[in-house]
Design a protein around this nucleic acid. Structure first.
Lengths: 343, 343
DNA sequence: CGCCAAACTGACAACGATGTCAGAATGACG
DNA sequence: CGTCATTCTGACATCGTTGTCAGTTTGGCG
């Protein structure tokens, strides 16, 4: 037999389709008695409203788009996981749309997704949440939008982030507290706004402790472990090598660990290493890497919560500060950092 | 102004909505002249058909579901990436549905997704593609289904896989060719059917070379690096330790590498280690891990191709062998395996 | 030139829900 | 007991597209 529709339920319950609709959507003005009868029939027939028909008539799609740069990364996976959990809870569905800013035609793909799917909202992950052209597309289409860990918040959009600057500062203070002074910092790519904030935090902590930053120990990587390895090797083979290296993400920290291993430098006895993100690689490394836990899944879930909020949908982030969320991070102290021993 | 509909296009082009529909869908029987005129207007107005309206009337949703156990794993990410590429190419969209077989109510979530979204097809990743109850749901709902790397193929469904057995055999032969005889094998969890096939390949190669398998060197892990580390440590501290360890996946191989490092056993000089999957961890490790490249993204893309095939949609896999695809693997020889040196 | 099949084209009714609005039942109150 | 406001309920139009089918051209051919 074919699929159960609202009419089937209505007929069986002896009411009109509209009444069934009211019950389904929890609207007021239905006698308790009727409501129960309808609910019974719904359960009996295992009726599931057709999302398309519903969308068509209500102009809501119950679909959220997750726009993401590199859907293969572990970062993306965590974001997506959180978003998925949020969607489940609020009976939305999630459509994942990869956006490669370097590829031709990405703008058209984005427009297509928005227009064809009538997305109810967009979650935009870093680093593309900092792209003005992409933001303009969402603004033009008037799609409720939440940015995850952006550098700035265009008017109207919601944001969910952590305090990268503070976290990096705390991490640096951890190293300083262990007695380290010659601390190297491996920057992330300029395309990731978070990496600049992390550097700021690093410098703020150094300045706060009255320790001058040795600029020869500040180098730029691209968030890959390969870069971490190469830069790490060049740092530890310096005439006056650092006693600690703070990498702006975990993959690069892992690379540093590998470099240390190749150069037979014991970690953390001779070199402390720390990263940022609490990526899986930080846990599978040995020693495990001291890092900052970024609440990625929680941020994505919060993004869904914002998008589902009727007030945000109506008024945008102008409605209040509830839509500029900042979540707590956590220093995860593990085996790769230890006290400084003079040689 | 509001969104452009097919009527706007029709009015502007001076034709009926139906004719526009014909042009959009590439149907025959439209004069070339009119066709071009319509296409011009479509471009001009930047018209994008409403996917919901289209689905509602045509009973096709242009939505594929990706059903996956643990959406956070790197494996899942690769699968999803391939599926996403395939969808882009064929103007489908992808809806990701996590399925935790251990959680209560998963069956209902699956049914909901199928019924509410009228999914045009389902891609099911391992290990849940081996679950009979889940398969029964798809069968009952008559959703075209393709299984990725399943242990068996229920009638009607398509499958995309690699030859785990052969690959494991080749990997084992690689180790044998290097002179290793005391080869350990770390099995995967019983819930992953692939791990059994990998073990079969291992045993077949050993038998083929006339080398008896030392059953004390065959241990079971759960695909995590932690398990690899613990089992690896117990293996290398055996009175007569193996000279090579073949782990059924890369995360466990990474764990073995870490165990070796802790025990100060040089790899590959005193111990060869190899894995399976070509996971990111195999590349970021040091030395890099010899492994089997599993064409995960390609498999997922092939799955989309099958689902998009009209003949498959009509007749299911009964239509022919084209719907039981086997893709090639590749041995990736890297630094973690080397020739056997007697001590 | 006339006829007939084939190629076009469009009117209209779905698809399955919800928004609108008018009408029916109910209850409060004078 | 009548009136009026309030609470319920359902008929019907609507969302934007495609399927059906009938009507209109067009073109080939005798």
């Amino acid at each position: 037999m074919s699929v159960v529709t609202i009419k089937d339920v209505a007929a069986r319950a002896g009411v009109s389709a509209k009444t069934v609709s009211r019950v389904i959507n929890g609207e007021a003005h239905v006698r308790a008695e009727l409501r129960e009868a309808v609910q019974r029939v719904v359960a009996e027939l295992d009726y599931r409203p057709n999302a398309f028909a519903r969308s068509l008539s209500s102009s809501r799609s119950y679909l959220l788009g997750l726009f993401i740069d590199d859907p293969v990364s572990g970062y993306a996976a965590d974001i997506q996981h959180g978003a998925l959990i949020g969607c489940r809870l609020r009976s939305y569905h999630l459509v994942v749309e990869p956006v490669e800013l370097s590829a031709r035609g990405w703008a058209d793909d984005v427009r297509s997704a928005i227009a064809a799917l009538r997305l109810d909202g967009a979650i935009v992950a870093p680093p593309i949440c900092d792209d003005p052209e992409l933001m303009a597309i969402f603004a033009e289409a008037a799609v409720p939008t939440v940015l995850v860990a952006p550098s700035a918040a265009p008017p109207g959009v919601g944001t969910v982030r952590m305090d990268d600057r503070l976290a990096a500062r705390e991490m640096t203070e951890h190293l300083l507290g262990l007695g380290h002074r010659a601390i190297a910092f491996i920057q992330g790519p300029v395309t990731h706004s978070a990496s600049a904030r992390r550097e700021e935090g690093f410098r703020a902590a150094m300045a706060g402790a009255g320790v001058a930053v040795d600029e020869r120990l500040v180098v730029r990587g691209d968030f890959t472990s390969r870069a971490g390895m190469e830069l790490g090797e060049s740092l530890v083979t310096l005439p006056e090598p650092p006693s600690a290296i703070f990498a702006a993400n975990d993959d690069m920290a892992l690379g540093v660990l590998i470099a240390a291993m190749k150069c037979a430098i014991p970690v953390p006895e001779r070199l402390s290493v720390c990263g940022f993100d609490d990526a899986p690689s930080s846990r599978t490394a040995w020693p495990q890497i001291t890092t900052v836990r970024q609440p990625k899944a929680e941020m994505a879930k919060a993004a869904v919560d914002i998008l589902a909020d009727p007030r945000f949908r109506r008024e945008g982030s102008a409605a209040g500060t509830d839509y500029q969320i900042r979540l707590a991070h956590e220093l995860v102290l593990r085996g790769s950092t230890g006290p400084f021993f003079p040689r």
